[in-house]
């Protein structure tokens, strides 16, 4: 018993203190991974914030965006033009989703809209595969993937680029929601569709805008994750990594997606490296959910989610 207590409560901390440079590397690894999760979580947050819909297809949107980009690059389209064309495709997709999925289901229960996004998920997966094939594709947009060492701490250039990109994107999105007229309209729609409509906010336009922005976020996430693992159908599974981030950060908070991502990223890396070996390793996936659930017990709406108070 004493041995177990020592192994769980003492040894990991001694290990951390004994090798601070490695601890810093673990923490940095956690921060980078967390920001990568945040990139995916952001897409969910945007759509949930504006429409109250949990978009099951967000992971596939990341995949679809990355497939489109790499497909264009493979055909010799220059990077900048390929990015512009991919953005156009994602905006067109947003229009199509609004016209053919959301509009016919307006005023339906959220669960119905959620089911519709499940359908959308499988459609996009199959359509993307039909269009671009199922092979693993190398995504090379010039981001270096080397590592450098600062005071014994190894830092990967690709991960650093992804982290900076994620931070920039979040800042832009936060400003978009807080400072712009359309951002405020988005928040109004999220609070109450009918009330928003009554004061002249065009619901259709708002939905197109928000799905387009989520599409752009999907491109960035697809770029970063695609550069890491190659563009392939497993990319859609990264949505699973975003779920604990959402639980923790709240489904409707942009800063929550970032802070949640950081907590999950750091938590799972520290957990895996220092406590994982005690139970045979591979704990980071479920550890992230345990961490999120622990937070949930204290704050059911997530760290930054809005507390819902309803009159009964």
């Amino acid at each position: 018993m004493v041995d177990v207590v020592y192994a769980v409560l003492v040894a990991p901390f001694k290990d951390m203190a004994g090798s601070p440079a490695f601890l810093v590397e673990v923490l940095i690894g956690g921060v980078f991974a967390g920001l990568m999760y945040s990139l995916v979580a952001l897409g969910f947050v945007l759509i949930f914030k504006a429409s109250g819909v949990f978009n099951f297809a967000q992971g596939v949107m990341v995949l679809f965006a990355a497939l489109t980009l790499v497909g264009l690059l493979e055909r010799g389209v220059p990077v900048v033009l390929a990015l512009a064309l991919t953005t156009a495709v994602m905006v067109a997709l947003a229009f199509a989703i609004e016209r053919f999925v959301l509009r016919p289901l307006v005023n339906q229960e959220h669960i119905i809209l959620f089911m519709a996004t499940i359908g959308l998920n499988f459609f996009l997966e199959g359509f993307g595969e039909m269009l671009w094939g199922a092979n693993v594709k190398k995504l090379d947009i010039g981001i270096p993937d080397r590592s450098f060492v600062v005071r014994g701490v190894q830092i990967n250039e690709l991960e650093l680029t992804a982290a900076v990109t994620a931070a920039l994107l979040v800042t832009l999105l936060a400003m978009f929601f807080q400072k712009t007229r359309i951002g405020r309209a988005l928040r109004a729609v999220a609070d109450d569709h009918e009330a928003a409509l009554s004061i002249g906010i065009p619901l259709k336009t708002i939905w197109v805008v928000v799905w387009s922005v989520a599409g752009v976020v999907a491109i960035v996430a697809g770029l970063m994750w695609g550069a890491k693992s190659g563009v392939q159908f497993s990319l859609s599974l990264i949505a699973l990594k975003a779920l604990p981030v959402l639980i923790l950060g709240g489904f409707e908070s942009v800063p929550g997606a970032i802070v949640g991502g950081l907590i999950i990223g750091i938590g799972e890396k520290v957990g895996e490296v220092y406590w994982g070996p005690l139970v045979g390793g591979a704990i980071e996936n479920w550890f992230a959910y345990v961490l999120a659930l622990a937070f949930l017990l204290a704050r059911p709406q997530g760290l930054f989610g809005e507390k819902i108070i309803e009159r009964v």
Partner: peptide, 8 residues
């Protein structure tokens, strides 16, 4: 998809 902890 994510193996950072392993490679650390």
């Amino acid at each position: 998809q994510e193996q950072k902890a392993t490679w650390l």
